[in-house]
Write a protein that binds this DNA or RNA. Structure first.
Length: 378
DNA sequence: AATTTAACCAACCGCCGAGCG
DNA sequence: GCGCTCGGCGGTTGGTTAAAT
C-alpha cells in the first residue's frame, strides 16, 4: 500500500496562528530544518515531551507543548509567513513592474513569478495582484488576463466619436492607429484596422457607400462602440463585395488582404513625416493582422512598456523595426512625474494614486496631440 | 457614535504530478 | 503496475481593519 495518511484531520486546529504556535513551528524548523511536513507536528509534540522532562534544557529545546496543526498548514505558515528571508511590507515600484511583466508572460503562475522576486511569496504576490494590480488594470482599460488594451473601454471612444463627427473618418482612424506608435500586430484590434482600411478604400472605390457611412458617423445618437459595430457590419459587406470584384477580375488579392497594400491607397500618407513613418510600421504589421490576437510574446512586452515605461503614444518615435520596447527604457518615458528617477518612478516615494495616474496617462496614447497634427494636415 | 461597505490578506480548499510502498 | 499520500500550486473564503455614510 501507499504511504500512511498525512494526518488525522480530527481534532486539528484551524484558523489564524497564534504567536505561540509560530514560535513552536519556528523553533522546530530552526532545529531540524524545513521539510517532512507530515511528521513535523508529531515530532514537535515529541519534542515537547522532552522539553517537559528536561525543562532546564528549554533554552536549547524550546518549550513546545504540541502543535495541533496539519502538516500542510505548518508548511503554508512557514513558507508564507515565518520564513526568515521573507520581505514584508509594501511592494516597490520595480517589484510591481516585474510582476506585471512576468504575469504577461507566465500568467497566473504565482510560484514562478515569486521565484523571480526574492523575498516575496507566491501567496503575497497573488494577493497583491488581485487586490491592487488587477483592479488598476481594469480601471485603466486593460484586460488583466490577456494584458491587451480593451479598446471598447478606453477614452479612445470619446476621442474617436468626436473625431469621426468632424473630420474624415478614415483618416481619423488611421491617425488614431498611427498615434499608438508601433503596437505589435498581435495586440492591434484587427477589426479596428480593417474598419480603417475599409473606410479608406471605400472612399476611393465606392463614394456613395462612403457618403452613407459619413451620414452614420455624424449621427449624434450613435455611440462610438455602436459605430464600430456598424462599420464592421458595413465592412463585411464591403469586403464581400470586394472579394467578388477580385474574383471577377481574377486578382489573387482578396478583400481581407487589402490591408497589406493600404498605405499606397492614401495620398496623405507621406505628407506628414511622423505619420508616414508610423504608417509604414503599420504596413509592416499588415501581415500579422490575420494572425492571433492573444496578446502574448512581443505583444505583452509592448503593452508592458506602454503601461509602465511609457512606450506608447509617442508619435515621433518612428522606428518601425522596434516593436517591443525594453522595460524601463528611459528614452521612451514621458517624465511628467517629479518622482521620475532613472527611467522609472521612485519606488520609495510613489504612492498608489501616483502610480495609477502615471499608468493612466500612458494608456491614453496621447491622441489629442496626434489629432492636432491631423487637423493641421486637414 | 453607530452602522455599513470596502479593502486587505492569512489561511483553507481542492486539484494535480511525483513518488512511495 | 497500482493505489495511495505528499508536497506544491492556484483559487477562494472569511476574519479583521479602515473608510464612508
Amino acid at each position: 500500500m501507499g504511504r500512511t495518511p498525512c494526518c488525522d484531520k480530527n481534532g486539528l486546529k484551524k484558523g489564524p496562528w497564534t504567536t505561540e504556535e509560530d514560535h513552536k513551528l519556528t523553533s522546530y524548523i530552526q532545529l531540524h530544518g524545513p521539510g517532512n511536513w507530515r511528521t513535523l507536528p508529531k515530532n514537535a509534540d515529541q519534542q515537547s515531551v522532552y522539553a517537559h522532562y528536561f525543562s532546564y534544557f528549554s533554552f536549547i529545546v524550546p518549550s513546545i507543548i504540541g502543535l495541533q496543526r496539519c502538516g500542510k498548514s505548518c508548511r503554508l505558515r512557514w513558507t508564507n509567513y515565518l520564513r526568515p528571508d521573507i520581505k514584508r511590507g509594501r511592494f516597490a515600484f520595480e517589484e510591481e513592474e516585474t510582476i506585471i511583466q512576468l504575469h504577461s508572460i507566465l500568467g497566473n503562475k504565482w510560484s514562478a513569478i515569486a521565484a523571480r522576486l526574492p523575498g516575496r511569496t507566491d501567496n503575497e504576490i497573488k494577493n497583491y495582484w488581485n487586490t491592487h494590480i488587477r483592479k488598476r488594470l481594469l480601471r485603466n482599460g486593460i484586460d488583466p488576463v490577456t494584458h491587451a488594451p480593451r479598446l471598447d473601454l478606453l477614452d479612445l471612444s470619446a476621442i474617436l466619436g468626436n473625431a469621426l463627427c468632424h473630420v474624415n473618418p478614415a483618416a481619423s482612424l488611421l491617425a488614431l492607429l498611427a498615434a499608438s506608435s508601433q503596437p505589435p500586430p498581435s495586440l492591434l484590434n484587427p477589426d479596428l484596422l480593417r474598419v480603417a482600411a475599409a473606410l479608406a478604400s471605400l472612399q476611393q472605390e465606392n463614394p456613395e457607400l462612403y457618403h452613407q457611412q459619413q451620414q452614420n458617423l455624424t449621427d449624434s445618437q450613435t455611440t462610438p462602440s455602436q459605430l464600430i459595430q456598424q462599420q464592421q457590419a458595413d465592412l463585411e459587406r464591403f469586403l464581400e463585395l470586394n472579394n467578388n470584384n477580385d474574383n471577377n477580375s481574377g486578382s489573387q488579392v482578396s478583400g481581407k488582404d487589402n490591408f497589406a497594400s493600404l498605405p499606397n491607397d492614401f495620398g496623405f500618407w507621406n505628407t506628414i513625416p511622423e505619420l508616414s513613418e508610423n504608417c509604414r510600421s503599420f504596413q509592416s504589421c499588415g501581415a500579422g493582422l490575420s494572425g492571433n490576437n492573444n496578446g502574448n510574446g512581443n505583444g505583452a512586452d509592448w503593452y508592458q512598456s506602454s503601461l509602465i515605461s511609457g512606450g506608447g503614444g509617442n508619435i515621433g518615435n518612428a522606428d518601425s523595426s522596434v516593436i517591443s520596447t525594453p522595460l524601463s527604457s528611459p528614452a521612451q518615458v514621458t517624465p511628467t512625474s517629479s518622482n521620475f528617477v532613472n527611467g522609472s518612478l521612485s519606488a520609495s516615494t510613489t504612492t498608489e494614486d501616483e502610480r495609477e495616474s502615471y499608468c493612466s496617462s500612458l494608456l491614453k496614447f496621447e491622441i489629442p496631440e496626434s489629432l492636432e497634427l491631423l487637423d493641421d494636415f486637414m
